[in-house]
Design a protein around this nucleic acid. Structure first.
Lengths: 345, 345
DNA sequence: TGTGCTTTTGCACAGCTGTGCAAAGGGAGG
DNA sequence: CCTCCCTTTGCACAGCTGTGCAAAAGCACA
């Protein structure tokens, strides 16, 4: 790690003091001019603004963060931010946060739990107003530490319980159950669950919903779990499933990314027609799910509502925790055989 | 916009003062314990660290930013951050910056030039050490403003000239020329350029390279430009090109994303076989380019080297500008007819 | 011109950290 | 024990902003 960069003087930004000198007013008048609601005469304001513009002055928000109860910074803790769904959620979140006057500090983690702790500590060092955890599972002890540092926590699609945090959850279990029913009602004789080995909450719950629904209906289903959550894993899942003696004719993939891989293998290596020979359901409604080659039936997460929930909760001054449950919506495209639109529940 | 959040006291983090009291030392000893290279005895250090751990203390980096010449924050200014290539570059950049001890502030812009100015001003307000511009074209006058605020500028794939900035550029023109040659050498009789109407530097240069090479060879090519840089535009480009009386048998798409759309249309609506009836070259080597259904021949940007260039330049204390030109590498897959590997230049 | 009320202004302090420098402390050697 | 040298420590100040509060200024009315 780099050595201490040294004291301030080697970098001189324009400060309120310089503006005050140029405008012939006090430094306080400068501060007041840039503080909404503060009292300053129109004439003084004009002088200050002219001097500030001429000098290129920008209020130092680092210093402002010392005097206020909020820094205006929100940490976004996310791993694999280049996967389609994650990138989309990140884009929507930053958009919404900015519209609310917040600044996003992006912390790219490697998915380990220790990594999340490190990210939270970094957030505390910068006195961020909140941390939105999109990946990783913070240890319960971190809840107290965050509270002590005035850091509000938002957990998206995480199942750990933090009393003072906002939990934004999705009906993953119900969607898994629904996926099973759709496959069954579309005439699938042998359904399969395809998922990855990464133990993320969302994938586990979707898989659980699917398997539970099958059990409740006393219908056996095949369960296949391989590697990480990627397109390549989707291909491997397809190879494993379709190489079997009795391959399935319907598959629920817990993410679209894997579903795309599975679809490509089904067609390319096993000559299966979709949906005539095989029905496929994904999850996330990533952009590629709507591409001509895939036209994937999938579940769409209410991203805008998730973002709205986060920002609304941040606007509340009360420190109480909350839990919001949102529903993913079914997006019917061309990967499920029959499309009995009126009968699918 | 929200009203002023109010004075400090409503949020109390643990400060060095509290740690000093708990450890029975001065506040300066606490500061020294957390300042690399500062002098503090092992006994005092142990007392301070124990108290800090017990109280959950984290050095306030906002305050630290006032006393140092660097805040440690780097602004990343990016639009459409959920497109495959942009997301990948962002992931790599944040990874590399974090490894170098920097913190990424993400500013999501809407691609307008005014938006870039707003982003730069925000960066100045937070006294970020640098701003890396991935999207948008900052006006030349902003160079002086940034310098006055001690904000270093890095421009990736931008053609505006800023004397004190680091320019990281790609050989887009050469790649466009090369794409033309590859199509020609693979036997294409009628080549086409397919691009979007968004006037981003990279796309213009790739297109220019392609068209210039065709002109130099006195070979007429079709130029088609439509809408924004998306998969859907790729489809429209395909429809426009293949509906013509004499459709092309080779297409250079200035991005992979559009190439995927064009390929899907070529196959799905025009029954064209790839590469037998049509050769396609893309650009960016996004993840989907390697998907079974596409296996796109494309150019891959040296993302790691781009990130390395940025971080290396940030490590230099000299304030001089620099320009780094990197080469994209050809990735041969299955969308170009003949694969004369030894003859392609 | 004087009075009363409102608005504006600037001083002094606060928030939290890092550091120059003088004083204090510690250790080694004569 | 004393001296010298090195290390450690704490004071006071700096970086930049916002704000309570008292003083000053401005304005309207009699």
């Amino acid at each position: 790690m780099k050595q201490n960069p040294g004291p301030r003087p080697s970098r001189r930004s324009v400060s309120a003091k310089h503006v005050a000198e140029a405008a012939g007013v006090s430094r306080t008048a400068v501060s007041r001019t840039f503080t909404p609601g503060a009292s300053v005469s129109p004439a003084t304001r004009a002088k200050v603004l002219a001097a500030a513009e001429s000098l290129g002055y920008h209020v130092n928000h680092l210093a402002r963060g010392l005097t206020r109860s909020e820094s205006g910074i929100v940490a976004l803790i996310v791993a694999e931010l280049d996967t389609p769904f994650r990138a989309r959620l990140l884009a929507a979140l930053t958009d919404r946060l900015q519209a609310a006057g917040k600044v996003a500090m992006l912390i790219n983690t490697d998915r380990s739990d220790e990594s999340v702790e490190g990210a939270l500590r970094q957030a505390m060092s910068y006195r961020t107003d909140a941390a939105i955890v999109l990946s990783g599972r913070p240890d319960a002890s971190l809840g107290t530490l965050c509270a002590r540092n005035g850091l509000r926590l938002i957990l998206i699609n995480r199942d750990e319980e933090f009393p003072h945090a906002l939990h934004v959850r999705l009906d993953d279990v119900a969607c898994g159950q629904r996926a099973f029913r759709i496959l069954r009602e579309s005439g699938c004789v042998k359904s399969a669950l395809a998922t990855s080995l990464s133990a993320t909450t969302s994938l586990r719950l979707r898989a659980k919903g699917f398997v539970d629904a099958a059990r409740a209906a006393s219908v056996p289903v095949v369960e296949q779990a391989i590697g990480e959550t990627s397109y390549a894993t989707g291909r491997e899942l397809g190879i494993a499933l379709f190489s079997a003696e009795h391959p399935p004719d319907g598959v629920f993939c817990t993410t679209d990314l894997m579903a795309c891989g599975l679809v490509d293998v089904a067609r390319g290596q096993f000559g299966l027609r979709i949906p005539e020979d095989l029905s496929v359901i994904g999850f996330d409604d990533i952009q590629q799910a709507s591409w001509e080659n895939y036209r994937l039936t999938t579940f769409s997460q209410p991203i805008d509502r998730m973002c709205e929930a986060c920002v609304s909760w941040l606007d509340e001054t009360a420190v109480g925790g909350d839990a919001i449950s949102l529903e993913a919506s079914l997006v019917l495209r061309d990967t499920v055989g029959l499309h009995p639109a009126n009968e699918v529940t």
